[in-house]
Amino acid sequence: MHYDYCYNNHMNDNDQYLNSKRGGIRQGAGRRNGTGKFREPTTVLRVPASQTTVIKDFLIAYQRKKLTVDIDAVIDFEWPKLNTPPINLLLYSSKVSAGFPSPAEEHVEKRLNPNDFLIDQMDATFFVTIQGYSMMDVGLLPNDKAVVDRSKQASIGDIVLAVIDGEFTIKTLSRNKDGSPKLLPANSTGAYSPIEIKEGMNFEIWGVVTGSFRRFK
């Protein structure tokens, strides 16, 4: 399989030949930046050989996500939302009063509500408490509350709440070369091992972790 995140590579490597009279790059030749499958400029990166599958999976998922953004938009357009949940509108009762009108009256906005920030789909959102340090590197610490959205479709690279043989666990969703799912911890100390999902195991993705929050005091 080819990945055109290697593409720009040629340009950069050839920089040293810029002053040469022969060969080297021709200005304006080749594919233009941002027209590859990611629809944005790409760059080169050295990665550990052991992690290439993970990274490739992530890139496939990322590419798919970029594509589905467009598709979703079309689906949303066709889907008749018959009774969308009520929108919070300002209670704005304008009184006729004799005094000087409040200059702020027309600028009243609703106060920020953390729910709006954390929750996309109220009816499908649940909370769990994090235990242990297996997902420390993505910022999930013990006693944090994680936001789990069941309405989202899980992609490779997402943090998911999975059920394995009746037990809940939060890990990053990944995939082996043969396509079988794998759950990766996010802890660089190496204290936690990836969980391979083997045949005969009862495996289900319960929901996608879309955020988290924590109190200090």
């Binding site: 769990v128 994090i130 666990t169 939060i170």
Partner: peptide, 13 residues
Amino acid sequence: SYTTRWQDVPTVS
């Protein structure tokens, strides 16, 4: 009360 009390939400590692 998994969905209605903070102290009762499921614990996950």
